[in-house]
Design a protein around this nucleic acid. Structure first.
Length: 602
DNA sequence: CGCCTTTGACCGGCGC
DNA sequence: GCGCCGGTCAAAGGCG
């Protein structure tokens, strides 16, 4: 029952308020003829929603329905006999006749109303309980004789007490959820503000760099479209590293000769016969990291680039599958034994578009081989299906988080971990940021399955459980769910941060990538975020037996505004574009490794 | 036949 | 300079 009550505050809150959920209960609204009933109709509706979405409640039994039907007079049946769909209809039955309500109310008040209800802080409980017990007690008392009336009276009192206690508990939980939502909203706003601040700072830097960059462009003889800086990972254009075209990305800097060097923000200094990265284009793709940096004047920028391009997002999840399903197509291009881990590490690159710089590594955790660690790097340079978009958004947003945090940290502005805690107050155990690692890495730990009860522990915590089996993510696009918790929030923060947006760019075209990338490079967009959000929320609620968890997911998706229904609805199916490596089992390592461990990933 | 995985080789970075 | 290690390439072979 605890889970069901979660919906109470959510839907009465203007932020999350999607009262459409309740529109299938019009009779509920109509069943309250008096104003003081109407005042709290939301809670009635919510209660009815709970029951509508789930099997009849286990802790509160309302025998009123049966009796109420007995109460009906033949004359009323013709007009008011209603078919109630798939839910407890104690509301519906009560609305047959105002007279019945009045009688019942009188009855209730005679029995215990004056004693029990006059102390209610508000009229809700009084009214609620009046309505609930009305048919039970009134009908019984009207029919039964005195003896059974006493028994029924006691029983009614007992039920009344139970119901009242339950309502109080629901109210408390309602309040708790309100607080939680307020907290989330507050954090969200704070982070938005912070992001705006960072953006403004970044814009200043960018402006300065632009001036310097103009000089370099002149010197280098290249006039290329300005590349804009993204707080996050590099953009895609950077690494159009057709494997067939470049033998080895970093081996000689020959990439500079490719046609993309302008887009990469790399120009050839004809005076010095050297590659020069323009200062105004620090936002480089994954592969650009290998471009030699010879210009000492861009040292700081290059350091930032070095950080950015190597930022990684690591996802830890329990899975018996060789890979988690993140909705993308991957091609394995290598496998190595990593030191300190008996399981080989597999290297994949995205094959959904030629030259997509995104890569990922998949490896079993050394300590617990049931845990699959997937590390993502880079941004896609092509549209993605929703499921894949989700993970892409996550990785990019997480990287953005990491990088903005680390860069700010360098200025003493913000500790990335503080940022992480700010952004993810819920997830001290779910997300960690390691800026000290060889590559700055955000780790999202899904192995510690959030207990739905955690939702109720503290208003400051939101842990989002996953609808499908949390212990096994096999074949489930588990990672695609992440953005609802993590990535999309950031993604939308960048969207909200109007300062980041190009004036001439349709915000709806903004992907998780650089804010000012060429539009052609942007990913497929959540252009129907509202619809998707509602759908996702509905689906989450409908699909998840754990109502609290579902509501939490709904809150998240609503707040994030960019949920992808596929990720929820189809979380047990493999998207059409899904990863292909069905036989991507780890095999004994290759020559470089001393591996003797053959691990068919369990 | 095209796409994929496998796997030996190669390269760069880093520490000693 | 050397060796280790992570990461990548690319030829060879498998598979549908």
């Amino acid at each position: 029952m605890a889970k069901g009550s979660s919906g109470l505050s959510l839907n009465s809150d203007p932020i999350a308020g999607n009262n459409n959920f309740f529109l299938h209960h019009p009779t509920v609204l109509n069943s309250f003829p008096e104003d003081h009933h109407h005042r709290h109709h939301n809670k009635w509706k919510l209660t009815s929603l709970m029951d509508a979405k789930r099997s009849p409640p286990s802790t509160i039994q309302f025998p009123v329905c049966l009796n109420s039907s007995d109460y009906q007079e033949p004359s009323q049946l013709s007009d008011d006999k209603r078919t109630v769909i798939d839910e407890m209809d104690f509301f519906a039955d009560k609305k047959h006749d105002v007279k019945a309500i009045a009688m019942a109310t009188t009855n209730i008040n005679n029995h215990h109303g004056a004693k029990d209800n006059c102390n209610e802080p508000n009229g809700l409980e009084l009214n609620v309980n009046t309505g609930l017990n009305l048919l039970t007690t009134s009908d019984q008392s009207m029919v039964d004789d005195g003896i059974s009336s006493n028994m029924e009276d006691r029983r009614a009192k007992s039920e009344y007490a139970v119901a009242q206690a339950e309502l109080e508990r629901l109210n408390a939980e309602n309040q708790r959820l309100r607080d939680m939502l307020n907290q989330v909203t507050s954090n969200y706003s704070i982070l938005q503000m912070h992001l705006i601040t960072l953006t403004q700072q970044q814009d200043k830097k960018s402006d300065n760099n632009e001036e310097q960059g103009e000089e370099k462009k002149q010197i280098g003889g290249f006039l290329a479209p300005r590349q804009f800086m993204d707080l996050g990972l590099a953009t895609n254009t950077a690494d159009n590293d057709e494997p067939s075209q470049s033998s080895s990305e970093g081996r000689s800097g020959e990439r500079a000769g490719s046609g993309n060097n302008e887009e990469n923000g790399v120009s050839f200094d004809q005076d010095n016969k050297q590659l020069v990265r323009r200062d105004d284009s620090p936002d480089q793709g994954y592969g650009a990291n290998k471009v030699p940096k010879f210009n000492p004047s861009s040292k700081n920028v290059d350091q930032t680039e070095a950080t950015m391009r190597k930022a990684r997002v690591s996802v830890r999840a329990r899975s018996e599958a060789p890979m988690i399903n993140d909705g993308c197509q991957w091609r394995k291009y290598g496998q190595k034994m990593a030191k300190g881990n008996p399981c080989p590490r597999a290297y994949y690159r995205c094959t959904m578009a030629a030259g997509c710089p995104v890569r990922k590594q998949v490896q079993r955790c050394a300590d617990d081989q049931a845990i699959l660690i997937t590390t993502y790097e880079g941004n896609h340079n092509h549209p993605l299906p929703p499921a894949a978009m989700a993970m892409a958004s996550t990785t990019s947003a997480a990287a953005r988080l990491l990088l903005s945090g680390s860069m700010s940290s360098a200025d003493g502005i913000m500790d990335p971990n503080i940022l992480a805690r700010t952004l993810l107050p819920c997830s001290s155990t779910m997300a960690t940021i390691s800026a000290s690692a060889p590559f700055p890495t955000v780790t999202l730990d899904l192995t510690q399955t959030p207990n739905p009860l955690q939702l109720q522990r503290s208003p400051n915590q939101i842990n989002i459980p996953f609808p499908n089996s949390p212990q096994n993510f096999t074949n489930a696009p588990v990672a695609s769910l992440l953005p609802q918790i993590f990535g999309q929030a950031l993604y939308n923060q960048s969207k909200f941060s109007g300062l980041q947006m190009s004036q001439d760019m349709d915000p709806s075209q903004l992907g998780h990538q650089s804010k000012l990338q060429p539009p052609a490079l942007h990913q497929g967009q959540p252009n129907s975020s509202l619809t998707d959000t509602v759908t996702a929320a509905t689906a989450a609620i409908a699909a998840d037996p754990n109502f609290t968890a579902a509501v939490a997911a709904a809150i998240t998706s609503i707040i994030n505004g960019g949920a992808h229904p596929n990720n929820i609805i189809n979380n047990n199916s493999i998207p059409a574009t899904t990863t292909t490596n069905s036989n991507a089992n780890f095999t004994p390592s290759n020559s470089n490794s001393n591996g003797k461990f053959s691990s068919e990933l369990k």
